[in-house]
């Protein structure tokens, strides 16, 4: 029995006629409280050092978060008066907002696409780098793949916009010059291609920190595992799928989670590339939240969208934590 369950049983006993039991319980509680106070007193300077961080965290993260939840129940316009409307903002967004289904559909498509990419391409590249026999070459490749992260996202989006832009984009110019069968058209302005054009930003999806994360996972696999696998005849692709992939599951789980969170929250790419258009064909909920807050001045409504996105991320995180098994859990199963 854990210590935390003891007081309940002691208290139950104390309701009985046995007075000494009650006295014993009180004594134990007092001793434990004293020990906690002593413990806090002994570490007071350490706790004091945490206070500024905690206060700033509360001020800039937790307080706005609570205010946002409160505002989501109000009809509130910046500079205007706030009116309590209960769940009206939620009802309007979930059942009456014509962008809801479209924008969630777009978000799911873009996020799923990103998740698939992040699960496959960087892992393959990390494995290729990991398999290099030359330590020097491995180092150079790691650096080369890392360099793109120094370019700001906005610049990347604008470069890609220049590449894919309708009339004079690089893609169309090359297509015309080489007489490729690829029809030259406005990839961002055509409703049927706009989401794919956005999804392919960053092709071939091999740059950045993701490779390093997978690489770190691969290097943490004990040599004994590799040796045992090889003795059992697991080499090449078989080894990759039966040993490497399960052993980097922690990294996959982390990256999938980060990608999902990023996918649900993201709107800057869509904002820069298409503004959510044509129509609402590439709109995502984050952009609609931004528009409502700052363009339409519907702060309460925007907060409701934000709370819905928060709940969605929370649910997905719990789902991921519960159903995606990490390497450690897998190792625990095999022991």
């Amino acid at each position: 029995m854990t210590e935390s369950s003891t007081p309940l049983s002691d208290t139950t006993d104390a309701t009985g006629p046995g007075g000494p039991v009650l006295a014993y319980t009180t004594l134990r509680e007092t001793a434990r409280s004293r020990s906690l106070i002593d413990h806090i007193a002994a570490s007071a300077s350490l706790y004091a050092m945490l206070i500024p961080t905690f206060l700033l965290l509360a001020l800039f993260c937790l307080v706005p978060f609570v205010i946002a939840i409160w505002r989501s129940f109000q009809e509130y316009e910046v500079g205007g008066t706030a009116k309590f409307v209960g769940l009206a903002n939620y009802r309007e967004y979930l059942f009456h907002d014509y962008t809801f289904l479209q924008s969630f559909g777009n978000m799911i498509f873009l996020t799923l696409f990103a998740v698939i990419c992040v699960m496959i391409v960087p892992l393959i590249v990390a494995k290729l780098i990991f398999s290099l026999t030359s330590e020097r070459a491995s180092y150079i490749y790691r650096i080369l793949f890392l360099i793109p992260i120094i370019v700001p996202n906005v610049a990347i989006f604008l470069i890609w916009r220049g590449v894919i832009y309708g009339d004079d984009g690089l893609l169309n110019l090359v297509s015309r010059a080489l007489h490729l069968p690829l029809p030259a058209h406005g990839w961002f302005s055509t409703p049927s291609t706009v989401l794919w054009a956005i999804a392919f930003i960053g092709f071939p999806f091999a740059g950045g920190i993701n490779i390093l994360i997978y690489y770190a996972g691969l290097t943490s696999i004990p040599d004994s595992v590799h040796e045992a696998a090889e003795l059992d005849g697991a080499i090449g692709l078989r080894k990759f799928f039966t040993i490497d992939v399960p052993m980097v599951m922690s990294q996959i789980k982390l990256l999938v989670m980060l990608t999902i969170i990023g996918g649900v929250q993201a709107f800057e790419g869509v904002y820069i590339l298409t503004g959510g258009g044509p129509g609402f064909r590439s709109l995502v909920p984050g952009l609609w939240m931004y528009d409502n807050a700052f363009k339409f001045q519907r702060m309460g409504y925007a907060c409701a969208i934000g709370v819905i996105l928060f709940l969605l991320i929370l649910a997905l995180t719990i789902f991921n934590m519960r159903y995606f098994r990490s390497a450690e859990q897998l190792q625990g199963q095999t022991r």
Binding site: G162, G166, D167, D168, G186, F188, S189, I272
Partner: peptide, 15 residues
């Protein structure tokens, strides 16, 4: 009119 009506990152004057 031009294929793309959304001018983000482009310059119609340049055209």
């Amino acid at each position: 009119l031009s294929q793309d009506l959304n001018p983000i990152g482009t310059d119609f004057m340049q055209q």
